[in-house]
Design a protein around this nucleic acid. Structure first.
Lengths: 96, 96
DNA sequence: CGCCAATACTTCCAAAATGAAAGCGCCTAG
DNA sequence: CTAGGCGCTTTCATTTTGGAAGTATTGGCG
């Protein structure tokens, strides 16, 4: 399996990179992620479980019965890839 | 919609980036892509249609009833993002 | 303590995407 | 004019995605 295929196995699922992008701005709570991203709560739960299992993020307990989700080092390392995709998408409007 | 979401709209579908990665090595024919990537022929056809429609690749007629698929400039510009993802996936084995 | 609201999920079901297999049309070599 | 390679399309089962509603835990408040 190529490196690219391995990467997509972890963050290739729908919403996965968008969740990571949001967490690049700092830890977020479940409800905030759901409202900001606009995905179904079941899918958010599934993605968070998968991303936690693959070491991209971790649960950070807060007071009350709330917790936040934060990126691990491995998750933070996705910043470059995300920026590259953003730059690619932004490189279209002006010249075309 | 964020830039990242826009990028994923185009290359976020399953197999899309893997097809582009393969084409970074040069134009490929339908059958070669299918055998090398190991995806179903219907999905390859669908992805190629979508990627052509979004200006990532184009059909290059060859003799016989064969054609090749090649990246446009926009498709070639994905190289950086793909490399970033590959680097991310490769940055795990040694230290962890 | 009993009730209420907030938060974090889980469950259920329909719709859409994915995957494997088989079929179709075109072309060209024999 | 038949046979085989090539580029798809079609069909159908399985998986994934999406939306809505339900459950569980916690803490605040009277």
């Amino acid at each position: 399996m190529s490196d690219l295929a391995a990467a997509l196995d972890v963050v290739g699922a729908r919403w996965a990179l968008l969740i990571v992008e949001r967490l690049l701005e700092g830890p977020q709570r479940y409800g905030d992620l759901q409202r900001d991203l606009g995905l179904g709560t079941n899918q958010l739960a599934t993605r968070l479980r998968e991303l936690e299992a693959s070491g991209v993020l971790y649960r950070l307990p807060l007071r009350h019965n709330t917790r936040a989700y934060a990126l691990t080092e491995r998750g933070l390392a996705l910043r470059e890839a995300i920026r590259a995709l953003e730059r690619w998408a932004a490189d279209e409007g002006p010249a075309t």
